[in-house]
């Protein structure tokens, strides 16, 4: 039985489950970006109440361990009558997690654009949302891109925690394979290597973008 798990077979199985890590990361990032954009708009909107609500939202989520969010969603939603499996709980928690951090990054980029741009846009008769979409966002985007790409690494790494509530992705596949093969050194080395292969290019890309941004500033 145990002989079935040759080195190649372990690696193949882990790679297979890395697809779930990749898929979950993509969904979390996309969902987090959409929700994060809404929160960003709240934070820069011309309404004190909305600003404060956005601030409480990001502050609260950024002060909560991702693991606790997973537990709360996983054990909490069923109490409200919503049946959740590990996949749903993982997606919901990661989207919330990503949205709060992205909203904070983007708010920073927007504030760096400068008030004068807002005032000029509003003076031209654009509404708040028009100014945001046509004048502010395009300028903020350039500055927001490097840290946004950098944060995607945190999302990929964050998906590893979903293994704890039983979602079978790369880390969970690693612990399961370790349980049958008793070769933790090899199994977790491969798991780490696969995560590295996913995250390192993103890190390099973020660094490249950052360097280009700063280069553009000084020249």
């Amino acid at each position: 039985m145990m002989r079935q798990f040759t080195d190649e077979r372990i690696i193949l199985l882990l790679l297979e489950h890395a697809q779930w890590t990749a898929l979950l990361s993509l969904i979390a990032f996309a969902g987090g970006a959409m929700l994060g954009l809404a929160v960003t708009v709240m934070r820069v909107a011309p309404s004190k109440a909305l600003n404060r609500a956005g601030m409480v939202y990001t502050g609260l989520i950024q002060s909560t361990p991702l693991l606790m969010m997973l537990f709360l969603v996983f054990f909490g939603l069923p109490l409200a009558g919503v049946n959740v499996d590990a996949w749903t709980a993982a997606t919901v928690s990661l989207v919330l997690f990503a949205s709060a951090f992205l909203a904070d990054i983007w708010r920073g980029a927007i504030e760096a654009v400068g008030r004068g741009q807002w005032e000029a846009a509003r003076a031209l008769g654009l509404t708040f949302l028009q100014s945001f979409r046509l004048v502010i966002a395009p300028q903020a985007l350039r500055m927001a891109l490097p840290p946004t790409v950098g944060f995607s690494v945190q999302v990929v790494k964050g998906t590893a925690l979903t293994s704890i509530i039983g979602f079978v992705e790369l880390t969970k596949a690693g612990t399961m394979l370790n349980n049958v093969t008793f070769r933790p050194f090899f199994v977790f080395s491969v798991v780490a290597a696969i995560y590295f292969a996913m995250c390192f290019p993103l890190s390099l890309w973020a660094r490249h973008l950052e360097r280009r941004l700063h280069g553009a500033h000084t020249s």
């Binding site: 790494k157 590893a160 925690l161 880390t171 690693g174 612990t175 933790p184 050194f185 977790f188 798991v191």
Partner: peptide, 23 residues
């Protein structure tokens, strides 16, 4: 620095706790 920053903490923990103990 790159190895740590580009892998999840939980995997580092498992590697250290399970992996090194087996070694």
């Amino acid at each position: 620095v790159e190895a740590i920053r580009n892998t999840p903490f939980i995997v580092q923990l498992f590697f250290l706790f399970f992996g090194l103990s087996s070694a």
